[in-house]
Design a protein around this nucleic acid. Structure first.
Lengths: 366, 366
DNA sequence: AGCATTCCTGAAACCGGTTGCAGGAGCGAG
DNA sequence: CTCGCTCCTGCAACCGGTTTCAGGAATGCT
């Protein structure tokens, strides 16, 4: 596997061996200069005479030379790679965030190394450790669930950016989403449409985002003098599946409601399907509103009203915050604002109801 | 930035400096052995006496030592990283594929470095080049559009796996999807339901997958003795947006059709929305069928009938093929089989429209 | 006991780019 | 003409693991 130990001072210039990338020294020999000079020219560290510069550039092109990233990383002590911990790459939410992160990093020559935590805290932990072992220059934990203490610990060995919570520590920056504020927007919108029986499907109960959105829901109800009824809150799982299940639970509980606020869009998708299955029409019988405004929400049937938090933008800002951290600057950006996007899944309240009976929806021709 | 030039022969054992990871030699000194021995113990290259092994392991734990990936990569000539070129990370299709790739790679200690081509061939090209420059051990091009010639060229410097086309070259492996076969399944299903006026929305016209699916569509029509009508083929863009646009075009053309086969699920989502906007019901007025069977298709309204090609599985197989390539083995796997998944977006034909003599008895049930 | 094996272990030479230091060339000023 | 300064360039020492090679110890065989 190793080549001969001799310095291989073969007098003839060796051409580029097929399947073997050229090294700095080969380029240097071709251009008749030393390796250091080539390195400096490539990095623009110093000015060199014009002739030399041209000769070196010609040699680089001739051998199609690309500096070996591992060697450069070793010498420089950085890899221009940022580790990213998501929960699932396939998932409209994380997909959108990752796109933003990639875009934000690429602008400055960095690339993301992405790993999935699969919604398991121990996997997430393993991800961060492996990323650190791979020598990334920083780690972005996107909507993760690792404990604050663990994150602070990791921040000792590598800069960390975390979204979805508020946390202060050296070399750690957090981007807090306006969960409660967004939830208020949603509920106020429903109240404005005349709804007073508003159910809520939350995510995993102990997730910070879910807790905050529940808080916003309660506060908005209080603003409108509506009593909070814990029986109108169901626990989902952030996915369509949980939305279906929780909606059925709510319907089975026989507690009347005319509107349904879901902790995220995927949950709302599931809710819509469950309502459809029960013959209830959205928004005619029940208004449904989500959170996140995933790109596909525009194309749902009906197009979903949602609270937009621009996850892509959040990803991009996380990336920029990370680049600030690695450059030793203090990041200054906050998470993007939330805003309400009204589409067709919400409408005026049909009026107070005793029990939402499973009925045939009016618009179906069957 | 550099440390002192002296070999730093400080007699006292230096502890782990905060924020600075331990090196092999520090661990070695602590354990009273040489760096080589520690390296060998870590990699299990040779058997060492039990006592030494324990001492070294203790030192590793003490300093929380993790071998520097860049240094290892430099010495070994590999990085245990595989470059992946997708078109967009946010996209249910690529998301699913990337999940499979990540899962397949992680099993063997590899990690994916993901870059997005943004549907632009020049971006895609730049991605591959940058990945190679970063020293990845191989590149997986997932459903990309680079020319065969370019790919063969790149295969000279790094192993390549490509999905969605058939191509043979040294150090290059391709996984061809059964596009035509899948399209046939879809059209046969529609024909079996009594449809004879079947429209098709394709993707970008020159994309290999789109071409093949069109071929399957034509062949299935021929099987059923239905004349191919080029006016029933519209050009989309693989996205919801194109599905909306193309469906409206088809409707405006006044050519009757009772079923719509879409080149992929996202296009079908758009088609459903457009039909809904025009007051047409799926599947009562028009049956819609997609291709890919994205996870979210289960939760559409109505749940979408589709041709399943398990993109996650395809991703995983691509990963395994790549690992075979880097290990010098010849990959042996093929793309997963396609299969029809019937849900609720397809139903019996309402009978020929705008055609005086109805010879089939199939009709709307109400 | 003598010599050949086998087994361990450490010194040192890599991998390929970067950079501190110093030497040499070129140039203006005294 | 010489001194001093700047500018350019090369040498060599890094970065931190890996691995070849060789030497020493321990064991096996006659």
């Amino acid at each position: 596997m190793k080549k001969s130990k001799f310095p291989a001072p073969t007098p003839g210039k060796s051409g580029p061996r097929p399947g073997q990338s050229a090294t700095l020294r080969i380029v240097a020999r071709e251009a008749g200069v030393s390796a250091s000079t080539v390195s400096r020219i490539i990095n623009g560290t110093v000015n060199v005479s014009d002739g030399l510069k041209r000769a070196v550039e010609a040699a680089i092109v001739k051998f199609d030379f690309r500096p070996n990233a591992a060697a450069r990383g070793l010498a420089l002590g950085r890899t221009s790679t940022i580790g990213v911990v998501a929960q699932a790459i396939d998932s409209p939410f994380y997909g959108e965030g990752l796109r933003g992160i990639e875009a934000g990093l690429r602008q400055r020559g960095y690339a993301p190394l992405i790993m999935s935590g699969n919604w398991r805290i121990e996997d997430e932990d393993r991800c961060v450790q492996e990323l650190i072992a791979r020598g990334v220059d920083g780690v972005i934990v996107f909507a993760g669930r690792l404990s604050d203490a663990k994150l602070k610990g990791y921040a000792k060995s590598v800069p960390i950016v975390i979204t979805g919570r508020s946390l202060r520590a050296p070399r750690l920056y957090s981007l807090q989403i306006e969960d409660a504020g967004g939830a208020k927007l949603a509920v106020r919108h429903l109240v404005g449409l005349g709804h007073r029986q508003i159910a809520f499907i939350t995510g995993s109960e102990n997730h910070p985002d879910a807790i905050e959105r529940l808080r916003g829901y309660k506060e908005a109800l209080a603003e409108a003098d509506i009593d909070f009824n814990p029986k109108l809150v169901a626990v989902g799982d952030w996915h369509e599946e949980g939305g279906v299940r929780s909606t059925l639970e709510l319907l089975n509980s026989k507690l009347p409601f005319t509107a349904l606020f879901c902790v995220n869009d995927q949950t709302a998708y599931g809710a819509c399907l469950a309502l459809y299955r029960q013959g209830l029409s959205v928004p005619h019988d029940v208004s449904v509103i989500g959170f996140d405004d995933l790109p596909s929400s525009t194309y749902r049937l009906p197009p979903l009203t949602s609270v937009r938090q621009s996850i892509g933008e959040l990803g991009e800002r996380s990336a920029h915050a990370m680049l600030d951290l690695v450059a030793g600057r203090r990041p200054r950006m906050a998470a993007p604002n939330v805003e309400l996007v009204v589409r067709e899944s919400t409408g005026p309240s049909p009026g107070p109801r005793n029990v939402p009976s499973a009925k045939r929806s009016a618009h179906r021709s069957k």
